[in-house]
Simulated assay, not measured.
Amino acid sequence: MFPSPMVSSKNWATSISYIASVMYFLLIIFQIPLFRVPCRFGTCKTPIEITSSQLIATEFFPTFVVKVLLYPGAILSSIIKGNTLPSYSKLLDLYNITGLRKYAAVSDLQHLEIVAGSYLSVVGALVGMSRRGRMSLFGTMLIVWGLLRENILGQIHRMFPTKSIQMYPMLIVAVVCAFLSIKKDVRKLIHGSKASRAKLL
C-alpha cells in the first residue's frame, strides 16, 4: 500500500524542516559570514560575534559561555586558513575582546535591530535543533531589516561609509533555511504546490 498524500506531505515537511534547521544551525554556530557591520570587535560578520561582544561587555553571562559560542567558528576558521587549532584559554585574545568590559560602544545603539536579530538568531539556532519555531526567522529578518535601514540612512545622511555595512549572499541562504525550518509553513507550501499541479492537470 502507498502512503496517503497527507502522511507523505507530513513526512516531507518534517524532513525538509529538520534539514533546514541543521543547515541554519551550522551557518550560525560555525560563524559563516552573513554581513559586515561595525561592532565592539571592530567589525562583526556573524550573529555570534555580535552576541558574544554584547555578553562580554555587559557581563551578563560568564566568560566560558561566550567561549563555547565562539570556539566552533574559531576552529573552522583555523582549518580553512591552515593554521593550528586555537587555544581555548586564549580565545578572547584571538577575537581581540579582552578589554570590552572597560569600554562602552555607542555604535551598538545605532544597530539595535541587528543586535536584537543576532540574539534571536543564535538562540533560535540552538533551540531549533530540538524544538523548531519562528525565532530563527524573526531574528534573521530583523538583521536584514537592520542592514537595509542602516544602508539607507547612511546614504541619506552620510553618517558612515556605505561599505562599512554590507549584506553577504549567505544571509539570503540563512533566511531561506530559517523559513524552511518551520514545519507548518513547509506543509503549506507542499499543499499549495499539490493544489496548483492538480488545477493544471
Rank of each mutant, 00 (worst) to 15 (best):
64 F>L: 09
11 N>E: 10
65 V>Q: 04
43 T>H: 05
97 I>V: 12
175 V>Q: 02
117 G>K: 03
49 E>R: 01
133 G>T: 07
173 V>L: 08
171 L>T: 05
76 L>N: 09
74 A>V: 07
5 P>I: 06
118 S>R: 00
184 K>R: 15
172 I>K: 06
16 I>Q: 08
47 P>K: 02
23 M>A: 08
198 A>M: 11
83 N>I: 09
98 T>W: 08
5 P>W: 05
18 Y>F: 15
21 S>L: 05
29 I>N: 00
103 Y>I: 12
4 S>G: 15
115 V>N: 01
34 L>K: 00
184 K>L: 13
124 G>A: 00
80 I>L: 15
143 I>D: 02
141 M>Y: 14
70 L>M: 05
22 V>D: 06
177 C>V: 03
61 F>C: 07
131 R>A: 11
37 V>E: 01
53 S>G: 13
126 L>Q: 01
9 S>L: 14
135 M>T: 06
46 T>A: 02
94 L>E: 09
190 I>W: 14
23 M>E: 03
99 G>W: 06
84 T>A: 14
148 L>I: 13
82 G>E: 15
118 S>F: 01
144 V>H: 04
198 A>L: 13
126 L>I: 05
6 M>D: 12
173 V>D: 01
127 V>C: 08
125 A>L: 01
178 A>D: 01
157 H>M: 07
111 H>Y: 10
171 L>C: 09
201 L>W: 12
190 I>V: 15
184 K>C: 11
88 Y>V: 11
68 V>C: 07
194 K>R: 13
156 I>N: 05
114 I>A: 07
110 Q>T: 12
62 P>V: 07
158 R>M: 08
171 L>P: 02
29 I>P: 01
16 I>V: 15
151 N>R: 09
133 G>L: 06
13 A>V: 08
91 L>V: 09
164 S>D: 04
119 Y>A: 02
192 G>H: 09
66 V>N: 00
131 R>Y: 13
20 A>C: 07
106 V>E: 14
26 L>Y: 04
25 F>L: 04
36 R>C: 03
15 S>K: 14
97 I>P: 02
96 N>F: 10
8 S>C: 12
155 Q>T: 07
49 E>C: 03
43 T>V: 08
